[in-house]
């Protein structure tokens, strides 16, 4: 479904990703863990072109969406196609990034109406269903500033789902939340996982990774140090760096 080959990313002289290879299958939930600065958020952002990779190949659903070497395109991908790709991979941000001048409903309807050109009433009906599925049917007409962090993040998930994405990327979706609001967001993500959504989740929630992930990736210093089932990573990590990290966070 999503295939990353030999991904390198530098910001100036700073090498953030140093040769990542990762393949995520359809319906798989992959959790990426690791210390901050290890490059896990950057990896996620590269998948839908929020950052451009320096070197490597990204394939989504059999279609090459980026192929570069040393900062140059090996394949020219028209910006229309890049946007289409972006809309096919949903993204949920740490800081929600809801549109503050729109109500919850308008946030969810915006892209289906403007990008997919769905008729307004059809988009509204779907948006209401989506908001209901994340438990916010009574908040449709509320502006983001009047919602709690957990509610905002659930609207953000509904907004991404409204584009009917092939996969969802979560960039530390609960890191900006008060502890008591983390659960409601994780609950929605679990529900998605049960519906066989393909998901890549960068997270510090080890409980979630252990319970929901099919595979856990441990990243440090721009490389994948270790990967395996939650069982393997959390109960019998092989690498010293993994052990050291887990002993700090568990």
């Amino acid at each position: 479904m999503i295939k990353l080959e030999n991904i390198h990313k530098s910001f100036g002289d700073l090498k953030v990703l140093k040769g990542i290879n990762l393949e995520v299958n359809k319906g798989e939930v992959v959790c990426v863990i690791g210390p901050s600065g290890s490059g896990k958020s950057t990896l996620l952002r590269c998948i839908n072109h929020l950052e451009r990779i320096t070197t490597g190949t990204i394939t989504i659903d059999g279609e090459i969406v980026d192929e570069r070497k040393d900062g140059h395109d090996l394949r020219k991908i028209p910006s229309k196609q890049v946007l289409k790709l972006c809309s096919e991979v949903g993204m949920v941000f740490q800081r929600f990034n809801l549109f503050p001048h729109m109500t919850a409903l308008e946030n969810v309807m915006e892209a289906p109406v403007q990008v997919l050109k769905l008729p307004k009433d059809a988009a509204e009906q779907e948006a209401r269903q989506l908001l209901a599925s994340v438990g916010l049917e009574d908040k449709v007409d509320v502006y983001p500033s009047r919602l709690s962090g957990g509610q905002q993040q659930r609207v953000a998930i509904a907004r991404a789902l409204a584009m009917k994405p092939k996969a969802m990327l979560f960039d530390e979706p609960t890191s900006a939340l008060d502890p008591e609001l983390v659960g409601e967001v994780l609950e929605v993500m679990k529900q998605l996982a049960h519906e066989h959504m393909t998901m890549i989740v960068v997270t510090h929630e080890m409980g979630f990774a252990r319970e929901v992930a099919h595979r856990v990736i441990f990243m440090d210093d721009g490389v994948i140090v270790e990967e395996g089932t939650p069982e393997e990573i959390f109960t019998a990590p092989k690498h010293e760096r993994t052990k050291a990290f887990l002993s700090r966070v568990l």
Partner: peptide, 18 residues
């Protein structure tokens, strides 16, 4: 305006003009 707004819009497939 926060850069996150641009990113959110791009992630939803919205063009620069839109």
């Amino acid at each position: 305006i926060d850069k996150g707004q641009l990113e959110a819009a791009k992630a939803l497939g919205m063009s620069y003009g839109l």
